[in-house]
Simulated assay, not measured.
Amino acid sequence: MSQASALTLHLGYGLPRKGLPAAASFRRWVGAALAGAGHEGEAELSIRLVDADEGRELNATYRGKDYATNVLSFPAELPPGVELPLLGDLAICAPVMQREAREQHKADRAHWAHLTVHGTLHLLGYDHIEEAEAEQMEALETRILAGLGIDDPYRPR
């Protein structure tokens, strides 16, 4: 898959951009997830980087959980017969990501990449509710991140 021509990525900000990865990084991470999952053809998705208040509001509204979480995935629900490359939307909560990176002794950039890959895989239909699904998804994430030069995010530090 040619990342430049087949991927349309919309990036939005609900907080100041200072210290956040560049759009090119998100494009690279999403492209790696799509390629690693064997996605062929065009793909379009949006990523919104949010603060803790917006992250909490989104998680409460859509999941009934009154706290900010690291990444939320909203797969596109297209009507039957509508053929578009739209995968859906991701919301990544920067303060939660930064706290987790510190607690897990990971570089911020590596954790940003992991959450982006993880969320993109959710948009492609991967899940981790059942143990077998979780093992499959984690193994795929680990392979994709290794291809980006990032250590296994599930290995204890």
Score class of each variant (00 low, 15 high):
83 E>C: 07
86 L>R: 08
47 I>S: 10
96 V>F: 01
87 L>V: 08
75 P>Q: 09
84 L>P: 05
48 R>H: 14
45 L>W: 12
50 V>Y: 01
67 Y>W: 13
73 S>I: 07
45 L>C: 12
104 Q>H: 11
90 L>T: 04
79 P>G: 09
105 H>C: 10
67 Y>T: 06
83 E>S: 12
100 E>A: 01
62 Y>H: 14
59 N>I: 06
53 D>F: 05
54 E>A: 15
79 P>S: 11
69 T>R: 03
66 D>Y: 00
104 Q>F: 14
48 R>E: 15
56 R>S: 02
52 A>D: 10
105 H>N: 10
68 A>M: 04
49 L>I: 15
44 E>D: 14
86 L>A: 09
42 E>D: 15
78 L>H: 06
49 L>K: 07
63 R>K: 10
85 P>Y: 11
98 Q>T: 01
58 L>F: 04
100 E>N: 03
56 R>C: 03
84 L>I: 04
41 G>P: 12
95 P>Q: 02
64 G>P: 07
70 N>G: 13
43 A>E: 10
106 K>Q: 15
70 N>Y: 03
61 T>M: 11
45 L>S: 10
49 L>Y: 12
58 L>E: 01
75 P>F: 14
98 Q>I: 02
42 E>V: 02
69 T>K: 03
68 A>R: 01
89 D>T: 02
93 C>S: 06
42 E>K: 13
96 V>L: 03
59 N>E: 12
57 E>A: 15
94 A>N: 02
99 R>Q: 08
94 A>D: 04
93 C>V: 01
52 A>H: 08
54 E>W: 11
84 L>H: 13
88 G>V: 04
46 S>E: 14
105 H>D: 11
50 V>E: 02
86 L>S: 05
85 P>C: 11
83 E>Y: 08
48 R>V: 15
85 P>F: 13
70 N>V: 05
102 R>Y: 08
65 K>W: 04
74 F>M: 07
85 P>M: 11
101 A>E: 03
55 G>Y: 00
79 P>T: 09
77 E>G: 07
103 E>M: 06
77 E>H: 13
76 A>P: 12
43 A>D: 11
102 R>E: 12
72 L>P: 03
60 A>G: 06
53 D>R: 10
98 Q>Y: 01
58 L>M: 09
46 S>P: 04
93 C>D: 00
87 L>H: 07
73 S>R: 06
88 G>K: 06
105 H>M: 10
73 S>P: 05
82 V>E: 07
103 E>L: 11
85 P>Q: 08
96 V>Q: 00
75 P>T: 07
78 L>K: 08
51 D>R: 08
68 A>P: 03
102 R>G: 03
49 L>H: 10
90 L>S: 06
101 A>Y: 02
46 S>Y: 15
102 R>M: 07
64 G>N: 12
50 V>M: 01
57 E>Q: 14
52 A>Q: 10
76 A>Q: 12
88 G>A: 06
45 L>M: 15
68 A>Y: 02
86 L>D: 05
87 L>C: 11
40 E>C: 13
64 G>C: 13
79 P>F: 14
67 Y>V: 09
61 T>F: 11
104 Q>P: 01
53 D>Y: 04
99 R>K: 06
